[in-house]
């Protein structure tokens, strides 16, 4: 429960965004229930090369892929490594935004100190810049234009606005931009609420599936002996 003394509007907005979180959790639970209604395919073939790998080892390796940019050619080459860096910045921005939204509701002091303010503010600002780059990339590259859906564009635009509002809200919480009252924080929390309600229906919910898709493909290829792989 919030421990600071918010205005009645801010209090309402804070309550709404907790409700939005509950809604998101409910839809996510339904989504996982839907996914797990599909049967599991078991592999009847003998292990591919036990000395090299196992299903479990392959699964774990695959899960660890997110912190191993050297593991895939697509993230190892200079161009891919740069994109991987933007991925890290972008997702750290998401973590910062979520932290700001919920910690400020619980106890504004948690995010008002200089260390927290600079850390979260910098992460959000950097993520905002990356988001702008990503919009440009998606709009300008023919390959991405071809495969993008309205949801892809909207999700990215929504996150870009949310990062920007996050920077402003963080500045406000840290004591800057007092002239706007709680307006920035209210706008940021309202955006967060919308974000939480929309996300389960959009591609942003990819992180819900991510651990499963990665683990499953890792198990499959680990059983066959192709994961973890080597090169020379």
């Amino acid at each position: 429960m919030p421990q600071h003394e918010p205005s009645s509007l801010l209090a309402t907005v804070e309550a709404v965004h907790w409700m939005a979180l509950a809604f998101m959790g409910t839809v996510y639970a339904l989504r996982l229930w839907w996914l797990f209604r599909f049967g599991r395919a078991s592999d009847r073939s003998a292990p591919g090369n036990p000395a090299q790998s196992t299903a479990l080892r392959g699964g774990l390796y695959s899960l660890g892929n997110v912190v191993m940019p050297w593991a895939m050619e697509s993230t190892r080459k200079p161009k891919g490594l740069a994109f991987y860096a933007t991925f890290v910045i972008f997702h750290l921005g998401v973590v910062a935004g979520i932290s700001l939204a919920f910690l400020s509701s619980l106890d504004r002091a948690l995010v008002a100190g200089p260390a927290a303010a600079w850390t979260l503010g910098t992460a959000l600002a950097a993520a905002f810049l990356v988001a702008l780059y990503r919009i440009a990339r998606r709009v300008l590259r023919p390959v991405l234009r071809l495969i993008s859906t309205p949801d892809d564009y909207f999700s990215l635009a929504m996150l870009t606005v949310w990062f920007l509002l996050g920077v402003c809200a963080q500045a406000h919480v840290a004591g800057a931009a007092r002239f706007a009252g709680d307006a920035y924080l209210i706008a940021f929390l309202l955006a967060t609420s919308f974000f939480l309600v929309y996300v389960p229906f959009s591609k942003i919910s990819h992180y819900l599936y991510y651990p499963f898709t990665r683990y499953w493909i890792g198990r499959t290829l680990g059983h066959r002996g192709s994961y973890p792989y080597s090169r020379s």
Partner: peptide, 23 residues
């Protein structure tokens, strides 16, 4: 069609990042 969940995961997991293009 009886689709295994591994395949369904691949069907819903793409984020259209375009990283596959150069592979």
């Amino acid at each position: 069609k009886k689709l295994p969940r591994q395949v369904v995961g691949s069907l819903v997991g793409c984020i259209h990042c375009g990283m596959c293009h150069e592979s």
